[in-house]
């Protein structure tokens, strides 16, 4: 049943300058571990102290980890609801509908992961899942500055950083680190312009790729259709899509929808 299961915040961890990670214990545990790349609709049911009731809403968020029934979510301060979620304390209750959507494929011996911004959390869970299978991933993480990159010290395997200000790793874009690589598959999540570059690199080098997309979602469970990408529902058929699928997309990299389904060109 697609119901927002009351879930208690049991731990707050991994703070950066722009947010932190929380561990949630659902009152009724999910029946099995989610697949990396799947997401949950996270509900703030009550405003924290000092916040107005208008901040209460649901937000689709990638699953950043799983530990014996506890679900990890990493929150960046991107709007009124996520800002209020960051003000919640251990012991506060949220609602969690999930796991939702289709995640990443795990049949890969030499995975390359590339993340930017809030793209790092689902890749952390993916890297940990690979590591549990004895596979060592290589991860590339990008951000404006070092203390805005989530989880970079938590990834198993090799991690390379890229920062816009040169505060850590390569001084430049994370996609510039792709040049030397020859993986079995590229897994990527983050800002759409980065994903577009990643897709172009993968197509040029004939590397299979799976990209995790973000779209505005009103229901998250395949009812309204506002999150659709061409004829696919990002909440249902995605959020992870293959490079073959995205290579043919008319909307990937060009068109987003906002509340009510209003169109916004990605270049705006």
């Amino acid at each position: 049943m697609r119901y927002p299961i009351p879930s208690k915040i049991v731990e707050i961890t991994s703070a950066t300058a722009v947010g932190h990670s929380i561990w949630l214990a659902p009152k009724e545990p999910w029946p099995s571990a989610p697949t990396p790349g799947q997401f949950a609709m996270v509900w703030l049911p009550r405003p924290p102290d000092g916040y107005k009731p208008e901040v209460c809403n649901t937000v689709p968020m990638s699953i950043a980890g799983w530990d014996n029934g506890k679900v990890r979510i990493t929150i960046k301060n991107l709007g009124p609801t996520s800002k209020a979620l960051l003000a919640c304390q251990c012991g506060d209750w949220l609602g969690l509908t999930g796991p939702l959507g289709h995640g990443f494929s795990l049949d890969c011996q030499h995975p390359l992961l590339m993340g930017g911004g809030v793209g790092a959390p689902p890749l952390l869970y993916l890297a940990q899942t690979f590591a549990a299978q004895g596979i060592k991933p290589i991860t590339l993480l990008g951000g404006t500055t070092e203390n805005e990159i989530f989880h970079h010290d938590e990834f198993p395997g090799t991690v390379e950083l890229a920062t816009d200000d040169g505060s850590a790793g390569h001084h430049g874009r994370v996609t510039e680190l792709l040049a030397e690589s020859s993986p079995d598959r590229l897994y990527s999540c983050g800002p759409e312009p980065m994903l577009v570059n990643g897709l172009q690199w993968a197509l040029r080098h004939q590397v299979a790729a799976e990209l995790c997309l973000e779209r505005y979602m009103a229901c998250g469970i395949g009812l309204c259709g506002i999150c659709s990408l061409d004829q696919d529902l990002v909440c249902q058929d995605g959020p992870v899509f293959s490079s073959e699928r995205l290579a043919d997309s008319r909307e990937f990299g060009t068109l987003l929808r906002e509340a009510g389904g209003r169109v916004r060109q990605l270049s705006d």
């Binding site: 119901y3 649901t58 509908t97 229901c219 009510g260």
Partner: peptide, 11 residues
């Protein structure tokens, strides 16, 4: 724009 979530719940 529509209402805040949850917007749809299977009860």
């Amino acid at each position: 724009p529509g209402y805040p979530g949850p917007t749809t719940v299977e009860i």
